[in-house]
Nucleic acid binder design. Sequence first.
DNA 1: CCTCGATTTGGAAGCGCTTCCAACATGTGC
DNA 2: GCACATGTTGGAAGCGCTTCCAAATCGAGG
Lengths: 335, 335
Amino acid sequence: MVRTLDELAELSGVSRATVSRVINGGPASEATRQRVLEVVERTGFRPNTAARTLAAGRGRSGVVGVVMHVEAQQLIRDPYFSGLLQGISEGISEGADGMMLWLGHRSKEETLDRILRIRTLDGVIATADHSDDPLVDGLLASSLPTVLIGHRRRDGSASYVDVDNVRAAEVVTDHLLRLGRRRIGHITGGSGTVAGADRLEGFRRAMRRAGRLADAVITDGDFSIAGGAAGASVLLADGVEAIFCANDASAAGALSAIHERGLRVPEDVAVAGYDDLEFAATLDPPLTTVRQFVVQQGEEAVATVLQLVDDPDAGPRRVILPTELVVRQSTVGRR
Amino acid sequence: MVRTLDELAELSGVSRATVSRVINGGPASEATRQRVLEVVERTGFRPNTAARTLAAGRGRSGVVGVVMHVEAQQLIRDPYFSGLLQGISEGISEGADGMMLWLGHRSKEETLDRILRIRTLDGVIATADHSDDPLVDGLLASSLPTVLIGHRRRDGSASYVDVDNVRAAEVVTDHLLRLGRRRIGHITGGSGTVAGADRLEGFRRAMRRAGRLADAVITDGDFSIAGGAAGASVLLADGVEAIFCANDASAAGALSAIHERGLRVPEDVAVAGYDDLEFAATLDPPLTTVRQFVVQQGEEAVATVLQLVDDPDAGPRRVILPTELVVRQSTVGRR
DNA sequence: CCTCGATTTGGAAGCGCTTCCAACATGTGC
DNA sequence: GCACATGTTGGAAGCGCTTCCAAATCGAGG
């Protein structure tokens, strides 16, 4: 088996330098190119990645890092992450050779260290769902082309793929306003999360724009079913007639709290969520919510990081993916 | 910033060779070791992986390949794979620097090519759930230390981590036999899968050993809910009083088919599954099934591949992890 | 047929590391 | 104090590749 450029050079009767040029698309006469490529083809030669990166100093490795620093449980249970992973894997299979994956089994500092130590990475994709994240900070500060999935306000000069959480929350809130409900409540997302903060912001904006800020009631949630139930209790005591929950899980909690009090959805209280997870359509009643195209987010992230690698000087790239309000019976009533 | 061994050597007043030895745990006097390590610590030096693998010829890259060539949907829905991934990630975080992950978005041949091209892999872990798998064949034929999760009969000289599906199926079948049921049915797993074939084998063995082969009824399933329901219909028509399903999903299907006919579980028909997925305990009635420790399988796979890397000549390593019969009301009745 | 610029090619250096080998220091028993 | 085994060190080669540089080749124009 042919393992080195030298053997290849010997076989095709040219120098190693020439073979290298042919393989990397450098200057070479057409005749030489043909001859060498024929031998490459015939022998199934694979250049040594280590040698290549070492010699080139930089040089495409075809490997992208992926950092999803989340709890193990979350990865398994939350379709958001597995959807992302699926999209990324799909993107990688088209534009690169492979991905390195780091999940959250170490401290963020340690993970960062590991990532930066692997010098062969072309670029890295990281989920940025908390506003305080040394891992994301470290990646952005490094020389590694980095694309975030989601972003913090201060990541102004970073490249990222995201949905417009603020805008989507406005759309949901507008929808609730249009139902003619008086007081409207919002159960926020986990404290410290970017998505939670942005959805709250969108809720506020819509209420303000409608001149109904006085009718807005906000209570803290944490993206969980229990948090949603607790939040709903608070809001119901305040007499709300519609609730926008920061995600589907808390909406599920809210629904059960509402039912427990013998109230009807949506007649007494309208409820909307966010995420459009699979179970949203099977709740009672089916949940009005916001669909985000997670798999596509993963694919876009790969495309973006590869662009960044190709052209590192082109400045930050931002991709804002659309969302879709999915109206179901939890707001518009049964037919 | 200190980037090379030479700089480090200069700073600590020894030769590059000595620094290399210290870093890699080679022979060095305690005094020298201390001095060098102090400088390493202070400067945050990170050896260049590419140079290291190149020079060492083999040399630990700290990166393990992971191949789970499955449908995207399967990865998300089937807790088996995410559990495995979690265990592997955990193992990697302890014993290695990172993992490269390939999912099933390409043809197996292409994936194999990509993997072999990345020369920096220390070893690779691959799921081997189908008896016919060119990817697994290719990996085993390569010089890359390979550990399978699950194994085919013909992988006799391969290293693998597995559970004893045959034995576990025997235990389940024995359990059903001990209930005193007459005819006992088995709904098999997906055709071509190793686990399916092995569980069938275990079922057969137990029946034969009990001298009850004449009472064994076998029908084809495919690890799915629908397949389980269809299989149960066939078996019920044959008058079985107990059913061993090749996995929990088909057991769920079987249960609903049984209920549909107005039969009671376990009074009329006892049902057992395999996997002990989360939902097994919430079925009606709660399902007797076999628990396999999936996360642990992942961790063991990493440990095994790292051993293989450390000592490639030590011959194949096999780890057979235990399973546990979890008896619930679908076989022993309600209290 | 010669000259000159453009193109193609090979030689050689070097990327940062490991590891063989020989040189040297140290300690032991006599 | 000597010969020797043992432990520690530095020099140097080389892993497989890219790339600079200069030499060789090629055409076209004079």
